[in-house]
Deep mutational scan, measured.
Amino acid sequence: MEVRTIKVFTTVDNINLHTQVVDMSMTYGQQFGPTYLDGADVTKIKPHNSHEGKTFYVLPNDDTLRVEAFEYYHTTDPSFLGRYMSALNHTKKWKYPQVNGLTSIKWADNNCYLATALLTLQQIELKFNPPALQDAYYRARAGEAANFCALILAYCNKTVGELGDVRETMSYLFQHANLDSCKRVLNVVCKTCGQQQTTLKGVEAVMYMGTLSYEQFKKGVQIPCTCGKQATKYLVQQESPFVMMSAPPAQYELKHGTFTCASEYTGNYQCGHYKHITSKETLYCIDGALLTKSSEYKGPITDVFYKENSYTTTIK
């Protein structure tokens, strides 16, 4: 009895394709271990004539594949690729409408935090270190965002349907971005203890939790000093293409032309909904596939993004 075979390709990165001759009487799992086709788990399936010449994702289970996976995804987590594939199996079914010149995501599976993050990423200057993220990001900007969303979920250790947080998501993504040249110098002034300067680099240099107003941050924000008295913390120097200011959701007025974009969060910790506000020729609110415009805006804002380049204080 002759062994019926077909020729397929296996890959971990969709760049390096490895030619395989597979036995049609055995499952993919018996031949390769966990195997995925377009995100779908085909591990328990036997090869079919229609699979001839198709590319299958496999887990990096030998040295060659491990090197290829690390170079593309910059992670050695053995569960990463499987999590990416199972997320992709959902995100490829989502709709990605162009809204006001940006790629958004039609609401499904509690994905409003991903839509808000995706919209924000198209408006701030950011370059990702893992080629996987950078490639998928370019495709997302062009309207094909399924891979990018699935990668975000995998890097953030999230599953489809789980509630997510924009600030946490951005923080994970910033860790995989090139923020080497970003720098922030802060000064804390206390009447009792004097003053202390701190220099922050990388992710810490672009994120701040405690106030939404970048102007206020430049002037000074009140913080408790270690001595128990009130101290003032203010920005001395900022070198970065953008800054992200966050605070627990509270009524906040966004003035046209003073910011790049913002995240609105309605609801409580267990259950809520994100919308995205962007400042173009007027203010726009993007909620999944829905767009509304207004000249002014007041609502429960939790993150505001500002364009920056270089700032030095005039406070002496």
Rank of each mutant, 00 (worst) to 15 (best):
G194T: 03
V243P: 00
S25C: 08
T232E: 07
V188Y: 08
Q216H: 13
E68C: 06
P300I: 14
E168V: 08
P249L: 01
F242W: 10
F9C: 12
G161T: 04
G82P: 13
H18R: 10
H273C: 02
S240Q: 03
Y284F: 12
S279M: 07
C271N: 08
V221E: 06
K92D: 02
S25I: 06
C149N: 00
P241M: 06
D63R: 08
F70V: 12
V221Q: 07
T226I: 11
H48S: 14
I315W: 14
T55P: 08
A146P: 05
E239A: 08
A262V: 00
V203W: 14
G161N: 07
M209K: 15
I152R: 02
H74A: 06
N49H: 15
V21W: 10
Q251H: 15
Y306E: 03
G33M: 01
T314K: 15
V304E: 01
L291V: 14
V67R: 13
G228T: 02
T292V: 11
Y138D: 15
T312A: 10
A115H: 01
T302I: 00
D13A: 06
L283Q: 02
C190D: 00
R139A: 14
G299W: 00
S263H: 15
P47W: 05
K233P: 01
T312L: 14
Y265I: 00
L254V: 04
D287A: 00
G164E: 01
V243L: 10
M244E: 00
Y214V: 09
N309T: 14
K106L: 11
S246E: 02
G101L: 04
N110W: 04
F217L: 15
H51A: 08
V203D: 06
G210N: 04
Y274F: 11
S246G: 03
C225R: 02
K298M: 11
L133G: 04
A231I: 01
A40D: 14
L153W: 04
E52P: 08
E52A: 13
C271K: 10
R83A: 09
Y155E: 02
Q98R: 10
F32N: 11
V67E: 12
V99A: 09
L254A: 02
F217P: 01
V243D: 02
V42L: 12
S25H: 11
V67S: 13
N14Y: 07
L179N: 00
V3I: 14
A289G: 12
P248K: 12
N147V: 10
A145T: 02
Y36M: 04
T103V: 12
S171T: 12
A40E: 15
D287P: 03
R141Y: 06
T226V: 13
T103C: 08
E215D: 12
A154T: 09
F174E: 00
Y269N: 15
G210S: 00
K298C: 12
F259R: 00
L151Y: 05
T232Y: 10
I301G: 00
L114V: 08
